[in-house]
Protein backbone atom coordinates (compact mmCIF):
# COMPACT_ATOMS: atom_id res chain seq x y z
CA UNK A 1 0.00 0.00 0.00
CA UNK A 2 2.84 2.37 0.88
CA UNK A 3 4.49 1.51 -2.42
CA UNK A 4 1.24 2.43 -4.19
CA UNK A 5 1.22 5.87 -2.57
CA UNK A 6 4.88 6.48 -3.41
CA UNK A 7 4.33 5.42 -7.01
CA UNK A 8 1.18 7.51 -7.38
CA UNK A 9 2.50 10.71 -5.86
CA UNK A 10 5.87 10.45 -7.60
CA UNK A 11 4.22 9.97 -10.97
CA UNK A 12 1.63 12.69 -10.34
CA UNK A 13 4.32 15.19 -9.41
CA UNK A 14 6.09 14.44 -12.69
CA UNK A 15 2.81 14.67 -14.64
CA UNK A 16 1.67 17.95 -13.09
CA UNK A 17 5.13 19.52 -13.24
CA UNK A 18 5.52 18.64 -16.92
CA UNK A 19 2.02 19.96 -17.67
CA UNK A 20 2.86 23.22 -15.90
CA UNK A 21 6.15 23.33 -17.79
CA UNK A 22 4.19 23.01 -21.02
CA UNK A 23 1.98 25.88 -19.89
CA UNK A 24 4.71 28.22 -18.68
CA UNK A 25 7.77 27.73 -20.88
CA UNK A 26 8.47 30.46 -23.40
CA UNK A 27 9.90 28.24 -26.09
CA UNK A 28 7.47 26.12 -28.11
CA UNK A 29 10.04 23.31 -28.39
CA UNK A 30 10.34 23.04 -24.62
CA UNK A 31 6.54 23.00 -24.37
CA UNK A 32 6.36 20.08 -26.79
CA UNK A 33 9.09 18.14 -24.95
CA UNK A 34 7.33 18.70 -21.61
CA UNK A 35 4.11 17.44 -23.14
CA UNK A 36 5.89 14.29 -24.35
CA UNK A 37 7.08 13.65 -20.79
CA UNK A 38 3.52 14.16 -19.56
CA UNK A 39 2.16 11.67 -22.11
CA UNK A 40 4.74 9.07 -21.08
CA UNK A 41 3.79 9.51 -17.41
CA UNK A 42 0.11 9.09 -18.24
CA UNK A 43 1.04 5.95 -20.20
CA UNK A 44 2.55 4.52 -16.99
CA UNK A 45 -0.75 5.30 -15.24
CA UNK A 46 -2.57 3.37 -17.97
CA UNK A 47 -0.28 0.39 -17.40
CA UNK A 48 -1.02 0.59 -13.70
CA UNK A 49 -4.77 0.75 -14.31
CA UNK A 50 -4.76 -2.47 -16.30
CA UNK A 51 -4.70 -1.05 -19.82
CA UNK A 52 -1.44 -2.22 -21.42
CA UNK A 53 -2.78 -1.94 -24.96
CA UNK A 54 -3.93 1.65 -24.42
CA UNK A 55 -0.62 2.48 -22.72
CA UNK A 56 1.43 1.31 -25.68
CA UNK A 57 -0.93 3.04 -28.11
CA UNK A 58 -0.42 6.19 -26.09
CA UNK A 59 3.35 5.90 -26.42
CA UNK A 60 3.37 5.14 -30.14
CA UNK A 61 0.50 7.35 -31.34
CA UNK A 62 0.63 10.31 -28.94
CA UNK A 63 4.23 10.56 -27.80
CA UNK A 64 5.52 9.13 -31.07
CA UNK A 65 3.46 10.26 -34.03
CA UNK A 66 1.46 13.29 -32.86
CA UNK A 67 4.21 15.03 -30.92
CA UNK A 68 6.75 14.42 -33.68
CA UNK A 69 4.28 16.14 -36.01
CA UNK A 70 4.08 19.06 -33.55
CA UNK A 71 7.86 19.32 -33.30
CA UNK A 72 8.15 19.09 -37.06
CA UNK A 73 5.73 21.98 -37.59
CA UNK A 74 7.38 24.10 -34.87
CA UNK A 75 10.80 23.63 -36.49
CA UNK A 76 9.42 24.05 -40.02
CA UNK A 77 7.82 27.39 -39.22
CA UNK A 78 10.70 28.59 -37.02
CA UNK A 79 8.38 29.92 -34.32
CA UNK A 80 10.33 28.79 -31.27
CA UNK A 81 10.22 32.20 -29.61
CA UNK A 82 6.80 33.76 -29.95
CA UNK A 83 6.22 34.56 -26.31
CA UNK A 84 4.29 37.79 -26.72
CA UNK A 85 2.17 38.99 -23.84
CA UNK A 86 -1.58 38.83 -24.39
CA UNK A 87 -3.00 42.02 -25.85
CA UNK A 88 -5.99 42.00 -23.49
CA UNK A 89 -4.57 42.86 -20.08
CA UNK A 90 -7.29 41.36 -17.89
CA UNK A 91 -7.21 38.06 -19.72
CA UNK A 92 -4.66 36.31 -17.50
CA UNK A 93 -6.26 37.05 -14.08
CA UNK A 94 -9.70 36.15 -15.41
CA UNK A 95 -8.32 32.89 -16.80
CA UNK A 96 -6.73 31.98 -13.47
CA UNK A 97 -9.94 32.76 -11.57
CA UNK A 98 -11.98 30.65 -14.00
CA UNK A 99 -9.48 27.79 -13.70
CA UNK A 100 -9.72 27.90 -9.90
CA UNK A 101 -13.53 27.84 -10.12
CA UNK A 102 -13.36 24.82 -12.45
CA UNK A 103 -11.01 22.90 -10.16
CA UNK A 104 -13.09 23.71 -7.06
CA UNK A 105 -16.32 22.64 -8.75
CA UNK A 106 -14.82 19.36 -9.93
CA UNK A 107 -13.18 18.70 -6.59
CA UNK A 108 -16.40 19.49 -4.71
CA UNK A 109 -18.38 17.09 -6.90
CA UNK A 110 -15.78 14.39 -6.44
CA UNK A 111 -15.70 14.75 -2.65
CA UNK A 112 -19.46 15.00 -2.13
CA UNK A 113 -20.46 12.28 -4.62
CA UNK A 114 -17.35 10.17 -4.11
CA UNK A 115 -19.01 7.64 -1.81
CA UNK A 116 -21.17 6.46 -4.70
CA UNK A 117 -18.08 5.12 -6.46
CA UNK A 118 -17.14 1.47 -6.23
CA UNK A 119 -13.81 0.47 -4.72
CA UNK A 120 -11.06 -0.47 -7.15
CA UNK A 121 -10.60 -4.18 -7.79
CA UNK A 122 -7.44 -5.98 -8.68
CA UNK A 123 -7.84 -6.96 -12.30
CA UNK A 124 -6.88 -10.27 -13.81
CA UNK A 125 -3.99 -10.43 -16.24
CA UNK A 126 -6.32 -10.90 -19.22
CA UNK A 127 -8.11 -7.61 -18.51
CA UNK A 128 -7.14 -4.96 -21.03
CA UNK A 129 -4.95 -7.27 -23.06
CA UNK A 130 -4.82 -6.59 -26.82
CA UNK A 131 -6.85 -9.75 -27.41
CA UNK A 132 -9.71 -8.67 -25.14
CA UNK A 133 -9.75 -5.11 -26.51
CA UNK A 134 -9.63 -6.42 -30.05
CA UNK A 135 -12.52 -8.82 -29.50
CA UNK A 136 -14.68 -6.02 -28.14
CA UNK A 137 -13.54 -3.63 -30.88
CA UNK A 138 -14.33 -5.96 -33.76
CA UNK A 139 -17.59 -7.35 -32.39
CA UNK A 140 -19.52 -4.71 -30.51
CA UNK A 141 -17.80 -1.62 -31.90
CA UNK A 142 -17.30 -2.65 -35.52
CA UNK A 143 -19.38 0.17 -37.02
CA UNK A 144 -17.65 2.98 -35.04
CA UNK A 145 -14.33 1.40 -35.99
CA UNK A 146 -15.18 1.64 -39.68
CA UNK A 147 -16.43 5.20 -39.16
CA UNK A 148 -13.05 6.04 -37.63
CA UNK A 149 -11.33 4.74 -40.76
CA UNK A 150 -13.51 7.02 -42.92
CA UNK A 151 -12.71 9.94 -40.60
CA UNK A 152 -8.98 9.31 -40.92
CA UNK A 153 -9.29 9.10 -44.71
CA UNK A 154 -11.24 12.38 -44.78
CA UNK A 155 -8.66 14.15 -42.62
CA UNK A 156 -5.86 12.80 -44.82
CA UNK A 157 -7.53 14.16 -47.95
CA UNK A 158 -8.15 17.45 -46.16
CA UNK A 159 -4.50 17.82 -45.21
CA UNK A 160 -3.39 17.06 -48.77
CA UNK A 161 -5.77 19.66 -50.22
CA UNK A 162 -4.80 22.28 -47.65
CA UNK A 163 -1.07 21.93 -48.21
CA UNK A 164 -1.45 21.57 -51.97
CA UNK A 165 -3.28 24.88 -52.23
CA UNK A 166 -0.39 26.66 -50.54
CA UNK A 167 2.14 25.41 -53.02
CA UNK A 168 0.66 26.92 -56.17
CA UNK A 169 -1.83 29.26 -54.59
CA UNK A 170 -0.05 32.40 -55.82
CA UNK A 171 -0.52 31.86 -59.54
CA UNK A 172 -3.76 30.10 -60.31
CA UNK A 173 -5.97 30.37 -57.29
CA UNK A 174 -6.55 33.08 -54.70
CA UNK A 175 -4.75 32.53 -51.45
CA UNK A 176 -6.76 30.75 -48.78
CA UNK A 177 -6.32 33.63 -46.34
CA UNK A 178 -6.02 36.92 -48.20
CA UNK A 179 -4.45 39.91 -46.51
CA UNK A 180 -6.76 42.51 -48.06
CA UNK A 181 -9.33 42.39 -45.32
CA UNK A 182 -7.05 44.11 -42.85
CA UNK A 183 -7.63 47.78 -42.20
Amino acid sequence: MIADYILFFGLSIVAIASALGMLISKSAIYSALNLILNFLTVAIFYLWLGAPFIALTQVTVYAGAIMVLFLFVIMLLGIEQLGKAPSIPWQRPIAIILGLILIFEAGYLMITRGNELNPMQVSSSAFGSPKAVGLLLFNEYLLPFEAISVLLLASMIGVIILSHRIKNGGEERPKPFSMEGEE
Binding site: S12, I16, I94, L102, I103, P119, M120
Partner: peptide
Protein backbone atom coordinates in the same frame (compact mmCIF):
# COMPACT_ATOMS: atom_id res chain seq x y z
CA UNK B 1 -4.92 -0.53 -5.43
CA UNK B 2 -5.62 3.10 -4.61
CA UNK B 3 -9.21 4.37 -4.68
CA UNK B 4 -10.36 5.95 -7.90
CA UNK B 5 -10.56 9.44 -6.36
CA UNK B 6 -6.78 9.82 -6.65
CA UNK B 7 -6.81 9.20 -10.39
CA UNK B 8 -9.85 11.42 -10.90
CA UNK B 9 -8.12 14.18 -8.94
CA UNK B 10 -5.05 13.96 -11.15
CA UNK B 11 -7.29 14.00 -14.21
CA UNK B 12 -9.07 17.14 -12.93
CA UNK B 13 -5.77 18.92 -12.29
CA UNK B 14 -4.41 18.06 -15.75
CA UNK B 15 -7.68 19.18 -17.37
CA UNK B 16 -7.53 22.51 -15.54
CA UNK B 17 -3.94 23.08 -16.62
CA UNK B 18 -5.01 22.41 -20.20
CA UNK B 19 -7.90 24.87 -19.88
CA UNK B 20 -5.54 27.51 -18.49
CA UNK B 21 -3.22 26.91 -21.43
CA UNK B 22 -6.06 27.53 -23.88
CA UNK B 23 -7.12 30.68 -22.04
CA UNK B 24 -3.72 32.22 -21.32
CA UNK B 25 -1.36 31.41 -24.17
CA UNK B 26 -1.58 33.24 -27.49
Amino acid sequence: MLPIQYFLGLSIILFTIGTLGVLIRR
